[in-house]
Design a protein around this nucleic acid. Sequence first.
DNA 1: CATGAATGAGTTTTCATTCAT
DNA 2: AATGAATGAAAACTCATTCAT
Lengths: 207, 207, 207, 207
Amino acid sequence: MGIKERKAREIDQRRELILTVAEEIINSEGIDKLSVRKIASKIEYSPSLIYHYFKDKDEILKHLMEKSYKKIVGLLKSVQTSTEDPKDKIRKMTHSYILLALQMPEQYKSIMLNSSADILSHTSVLFDGASTKRQAVAILCQCLKQIDKYKNTDDKHIELTAQIIWATTFGLIIRMIIENGIDDTQKNLLIQHHIQFIEDGIIQKKT
Amino acid sequence: MGIKERKAREIDQRRELILTVAEEIINSEGIDKLSVRKIASKIEYSPSLIYHYFKDKDEILKHLMEKSYKKIVGLLKSVQTSTEDPKDKIRKMTHSYILLALQMPEQYKSIMLNSSADILSHTSVLFDGASTKRQAVAILCQCLKQIDKYKNTDDKHIELTAQIIWATTFGLIIRMIIENGIDDTQKNLLIQHHIQFIEDGIIQKKT
Amino acid sequence: MGIKERKAREIDQRRELILTVAEEIINSEGIDKLSVRKIASKIEYSPSLIYHYFKDKDEILKHLMEKSYKKIVGLLKSVQTSTEDPKDKIRKMTHSYILLALQMPEQYKSIMLNSSADILSHTSVLFDGASTKRQAVAILCQCLKQIDKYKNTDDKHIELTAQIIWATTFGLIIRMIIENGIDDTQKNLLIQHHIQFIEDGIIQKKT
Amino acid sequence: MGIKERKAREIDQRRELILTVAEEIINSEGIDKLSVRKIASKIEYSPSLIYHYFKDKDEILKHLMEKSYKKIVGLLKSVQTSTEDPKDKIRKMTHSYILLALQMPEQYKSIMLNSSADILSHTSVLFDGASTKRQAVAILCQCLKQIDKYKNTDDKHIELTAQIIWATTFGLIIRMIIENGIDDTQKNLLIQHHIQFIEDGIIQKKT
DNA sequence: CATGAATGAGTTTTCATTCAT
DNA sequence: AATGAATGAAAACTCATTCAT
């Protein structure tokens, strides 16, 4: 049975290769310049071969998105348990999240700026009720609830706060990606400042 | 010489018409559905005529971006003089800016998410020194400076604050555009909340 | 205005040329071997040019079918008024119809063997009620009704008779086309025989 | 040698399986949707395996046609011996033949409308001399000869009559297949009518 | 025996662009 | 000034076929 396994692995490797190459193209030319031909010519095979491994271009895109999506969602999970103090938690999570996102800029962009219904069903966070349907917002809400000032705040308000934190952090990340070439010290200053801003917003909150 | 002038004016009008139509297409179908043919058919001329007025599609795009950019920057100017209180000014400017941006979603996206050097030379705001080179940041800085708490804050700090305000506002706008279908009340709540957040961040600020 | 007209004529000529070439291909290779590329290469132009004159392949096909259809329907009309005696009329019409059909074999085939709903909506004759909806059947029915033996025959019966005359004549034509290479004397014998057969069938009829 | 024989039988079984599956595809999707891939996926083997059993697609087609041809000719044989009265025989044979043909519409069409020389060498019936070379015509001629009225008719005349019977029956079948959706009562009426027509033609015959 | 890998030719279609008129 | 003709390159995809294993 070793043969079958090896074959299976080889197939997976091929698929992986195709996805990797596709990612590279997206990273260098943008997602709408991705074409089956380009993938093929980059791996130096004929375009038709691609169809051995993927049903069609959409399937490639789907895998690509899934892969990226998992990576991005994974970001949050990887930092969430480090500390107890809720404010600290938000601070640290946000910080880590930004840094990780910046390490996979094109993927972050292609997922988070994607407006296909499919992707949005995972990535949208601004709708009423996101605190129960989106992990990221949920986690933020949990933290906020543990902060004294929010004890008596109603859930909707907390949700909105979480949404704003998320959306604004997203904004900073996207701009840092797009305005590429910002040096690291400036980046760090911006990140520090943004986190400080969030903190101030949170502490201040009364209602 | 009157004839020459008239001709020149007519040419300008044509160019303007082409750009306007292109804008319409972008706003209704997105920038990557823009094609020379579509423009031509919309002005009811042949595609080839377009090439009398623009060297190629890229040139159209370039002009388009410039135009949109001016429009977007114009947004800020159009609201800036309504009030005296600096905090109020920031609040109102931000509010108006968001509303105006939401009225031209595709254009806003195509400019503000564009990463060509050409466009970025107008739209980047996160670099060190943006307060002197970018109107938007400059205006924000001016306002911040007038706020008591910022009297003794150094310029770099103020610039960073302005940059964060800008980038986060940008984030909220982009998400509201991308996650399309958010209803107006939810949009308004988010906007209110965001503005409140900025205010809290500003007031809180102690150096 | 002479220029416009000339241009218009030239366009029509081009369209006509494309259609003619398409017909040739169909005639020599069959309808499902027809491709835009083939048309293009036969007129020695690039495939894209075809799209100047026709929206897509379907439009070409549609024109082709329409053209042939009109020709075929025209066949009947061109013979229908030669004589008064109804039996004679059927005899002569059938004869002429067969001869004319044999002069445009591939077109006859592509229309009469076409099973697209669009075409069938013109060419189907076997349904209940065809005598009011299809000219060919209608004419045959009219003739039959004038024959003494059919005076007291109900309409449905007459319709069926007409349908059989039509369907069997169709069968003979198609086979003569498909079994190509039958010499003219044999063809004539077959046609004579078929017509005789119809006549015998009609005369015999009692019920 | 037992092994060799078994092998040979197995090979034949495979070939048979492939042909059967191909037939199924033709009957459900039409002959020009038949593809090697489809056959392969239906027998759950890889496309390449097909090439162990057949040189290429054309060979499959050739075998297929032959098989179908035999089936169609078989149709006639299967009914020919049921009765003694020649008129009755023609009536019954024609009836059964039509019904059987309608049960394999796509196959019938692909054989009987096929104009490749190869197929035609089996299916053509209109040539002078068909009564000795084509079973179907031969059988019809035999029957006709047994009918009193044809006792003194020369062979050529009888052949022509048989050819017309065959060709017109073919016409009715093809039209019933092509104009699909004709309901069963209408179909039966048409068939009855056609058979009656033949009978009338035959009885009438004097010469 | 059986298969996956690989290809090349073909399919329709869209588009930016050039050029002669 | 304006246009139709014309093209070449690119897009996604399908299919029959070959070959090494």
